[in-house]
Design a protein around this nucleic acid. Sequence first.
DNA 1: GAGGGCGACCAAAGCGCTTTGAATTGCCGT
DNA 2: ACGGCAATTCAAAGCGCTTTGGTCGCCCTC
Lengths: 339, 339
Amino acid sequence: MNLKQLSLMLELSQTTVSRALNGYPEVSEETRRRVMDAAKRHGYRPNPSARRLATGKAGMIGYVMPTGAAVDIDPHFVEFLSGLGDYARGHELDLVLSPADAQDEETTYRRIVANKQVDALYISAPCSADKRVALAHQLGIPFIVHGRSEGLDFDYPFIDIDNEGAFHDATRLLLQLGHRRVGLINGDDSQTFAIFRERGVRRALLESGLVLEPRQIRSVAMTEENGYRAARGMLEASDAPTAIVCSSLIMALGVVRAARDLRLSLPGDLSLVSHDDVFPWLRPEHFSVPLTTTRSSIRAAGARVAERLAARISGLEDGARGEVWPVDLVVRGSIAGVR
Amino acid sequence: MNLKQLSLMLELSQTTVSRALNGYPEVSEETRRRVMDAAKRHGYRPNPSARRLATGKAGMIGYVMPTGAAVDIDPHFVEFLSGLGDYARGHELDLVLSPADAQDEETTYRRIVANKQVDALYISAPCSADKRVALAHQLGIPFIVHGRSEGLDFDYPFIDIDNEGAFHDATRLLLQLGHRRVGLINGDDSQTFAIFRERGVRRALLESGLVLEPRQIRSVAMTEENGYRAARGMLEASDAPTAIVCSSLIMALGVVRAARDLRLSLPGDLSLVSHDDVFPWLRPEHFSVPLTTTRSSIRAAGARVAERLAARISGLEDGARGEVWPVDLVVRGSIAGVR
DNA sequence: GAGGGCGACCAAAGCGCTTTGAATTGCCGT
DNA sequence: ACGGCAATTCAAAGCGCTTTGGTCGCCCTC
């Protein structure tokens, strides 16, 4: 059943039927009702390929996915995707993942924009002066950044959590508990979120007249093993921290293991705070010692990104508004006053 | 630059240019070279929307992603995706994720097939007599199942790992070490992989004249917490198992935690084997006691699925060949002879 | 030398929509 | 009675490809 057949059946022109269906005002209410009705009855659905060709709109949102043998997709991504899907489902928005060579994402961005394969895209895990953000901006495709990029000479729309505030507050709490040597086990510091978190820790320390020693900070890919190594490295040193702030639950697993290997008890010998993106399959309250966390649902962020992308596509949103979400600090058993 | 301009420029018809570009034989080699050359020089790329409308082929592969507030996407998915992307990248194949109401995926399947939004799709985590597999088969769209479904009255193409063999071998090894009470902490047993794994354990036990008691088996969603609960439940019982086989590393984390809480040492008091899908961020060799695992890279499976989907799209593959991959049994410190 | 076959190319008809520009109608004011 | 105007409707021209159904030479065969 295509438009032609439907219009023949209704004894109307394709124009009128098309307009009726797409809510244009210049069609009488009665006609619209008739058309809508017939369309529903015959299960007519406009062919998206044809519509795409005619309008240039794809009805899809895109994500350029870096791939390569050495590239590991962040497990956070799947939770983000859940959220995106939650929203997109109700709006018949599909998501297209375009795999790209991690060394050369630009080609892929250019391709999907030139081909009009998607109406909007989102960019995740930006670094400073992120090339992709600059490119999307320059190509003029609607986009939302999940996270922030610093050092670009234009504004852009984003949603991010208050990483600096979260880590500041976590660190301040530890300081209030009497800790003086606080270590930071951070994610890869080419990424903005890690920079902000470090900044938060530093600011809190500074407020107490302390500084973050280079030995007390590690920036690594967020795996269990890296968490372990980083923690061990710090904890075996002579000026071992009495508290550690850590950027992901997965690394926190490694930190806990390191503490155990070194016969340090939590929270007696070591206080630990981790950021928690809220995975259903690994919860801080179920660690052997329940973990104090800075918590923000990455899934909720996914849903919000989808919502804003949809708004941008339909012209309901424009401009460069950035949204920064506050982060919960959830206190559990893994922190205590310093001995 | 579109086909028309290019053909004008070359003083050839659109037909000939199109054929030259698409490798049809009825164009002279010289002309083809000229065309190819000009296309490259002017950066001509056929408009995919137009091509789609004309051919009905989308140049994309699809995945219907169940979503909903209560639905958690499996973290395995992201690794699978990595693999898929690794292959797809080299072939300019994009993946479209169509979010669907987990209660009613059929509507979404029908939509994407009717709209010809994708040329082929893959189906993951099938259950017995999986509706989606039946539907894809019936709708006649090329597809590959990652995993298997039993109880369908037709054959279909799939790739799966030898879950039964893996769990059989793991269990047999434990039996050879003298264990007589082996527990199984399995994934949700509506899914085929869990059924096969259980079958493998049962078979191995049977070969030693043993049976798997209902108390010694748990089928749960694969979270850390569920692993913990299941292990605790088993280990606190009077006929506690001396060895546990477990379906995922994440659950194994919970099992280890339970053992620790109960002051059971690994492998002294409890032997543990887990299945390992090979995540970069959580490795069995880095558990406090290195874990013996049945190992199979889910990422490799993703790449293979993409490869076969591409082959199906281009007509290089058809029929219902199923591929079953062997699984490594990697022995590490978490198992020992029974005391 | 007529007929057939073949290699190379082309004009035009789709694919199924949206959108432009125009036509038709009824109604109002003057 | 007539021009003007708003409300509806329409025919046809795109969108940029692929594919059908040719044409046009040219060589080969009998």
